[in-house]
Computed example of a mutant assay.
Amino acid sequence: MSPHGHGTHNSAVSAGRRLRELLASGRLVTAPGVYDGLGAHLVARCGFPTAYLTGAGVAVAGYGLPDIGLLTATEMVERARIVADALGEVPLIADADTGYGEAVHVVRTVRAYERAGVAAIQLEDQAFPKKCGHLPDKELVDARAFEAKLHAALDARTDPDTVIVARTDARGPLGIAEAIDRAGRYAAAGADVVFVEAPQTLEEIEKIAAQVDAPLLINMVQGGLTPDTAPDTLAALGYRIAIHPGALLGPAVLAGFDSLKRLGGTLPAGLTPGPQGLFELVGLREWAAVGERYREHSDRSDRSDRSVQSDRSDHGKDGA
């Protein structure tokens, strides 16, 4: 626990219970994104009721990597422990990506995140390796497979107050209707909070609120796909949590550029706006090229295997 005693809650009350109390208030909870101990202290000292451990922020700022599923559960759990300790009594909502594997891996992930001191664990229905929710070409697992992961997460909790957040990334590849359908299914499966990633218009934000019967989380990504929406509007629609993953990271990058320019540095040219540009700073294009290289190798191997199998089949016919 932080020696600075952030907040006024009784430390005997679990982090999950403190977050549930905030959700029960009926007000919109604003959760700035944090990725290190310093940011956690800043959020706590500025009086925010909760914080969000951003996987993208940990990847970019902690490891110099783009948010394309390169971090391991061990790396994220250790960062969660650091941040939760610095936050003190301020509950932490923690990104756990896809759970780092199948349902059995989700069980281990949930137990490890709980030991790290988080209040809520966010899981998503992307296929591994996942991507930032505001990048193109995302792939999903079957909704039933994700429901199995949710059941595993709910059963694995040692503290029944630990909040399980179910995120669907279906809006991009499958459309808003499928995203809302999945959100409803995940709520029915027992998720405590539901998160439809990257709605693209205010109408879609309103439609999610009207059609999904569950406490809702929304992601406000500066320069992302979702329109910036006023907190009062979100609260009136019934959203309960608004995460702002880039609240500290974006300004830190801009201030860093400004400082380095004053020292005589040359700013990089041709960066893409928004989250993709941030990931390009830490090697998105290079990592994408690596992935494509081995994907092509795999495709060639698959074609070769099919050819061999076909040859064997033809040989068997000839000898019949």
Rank of each mutant, 00 (worst) to 15 (best):
K261R: 15
V29C: 04
R17V: 10
G250Y: 08
G47R: 14
A198M: 13
G223C: 09
A255Y: 13
P275S: 04
G172H: 07
K261G: 00
A187D: 09
D213R: 14
A61L: 12
D125H: 12
P49L: 03
V107H: 05
A84H: 06
A289I: 08
D142I: 04
E75Y: 08
T8N: 12
D67C: 03
L217P: 09
S313C: 02
P136Y: 03
G26M: 02
Q222I: 14
A86L: 12
L254C: 04
P173R: 09
Y186F: 14
L278G: 05
L174D: 15
G184F: 02
V165C: 06
D213F: 01
A143L: 02
G223D: 11
L28P: 00
G265E: 09
D305S: 06
L154C: 04
H41L: 13
P173N: 04
G316W: 07
L28W: 00
D97P: 07
G88L: 02
A15S: 11
L260Y: 08
G99Y: 05
I241R: 08
D155R: 15
D302S: 09
G33A: 00
G184P: 00
Q122Y: 06
V253L: 14
G224V: 10
V58T: 08
V58R: 06
S25H: 08
A242Q: 14
A15L: 07
R111Y: 01
P129G: 05
C46F: 10
Q126P: 05
D85E: 15
P227G: 00
G55S: 01
G47A: 13
A143E: 12
G238E: 06
D311V: 11
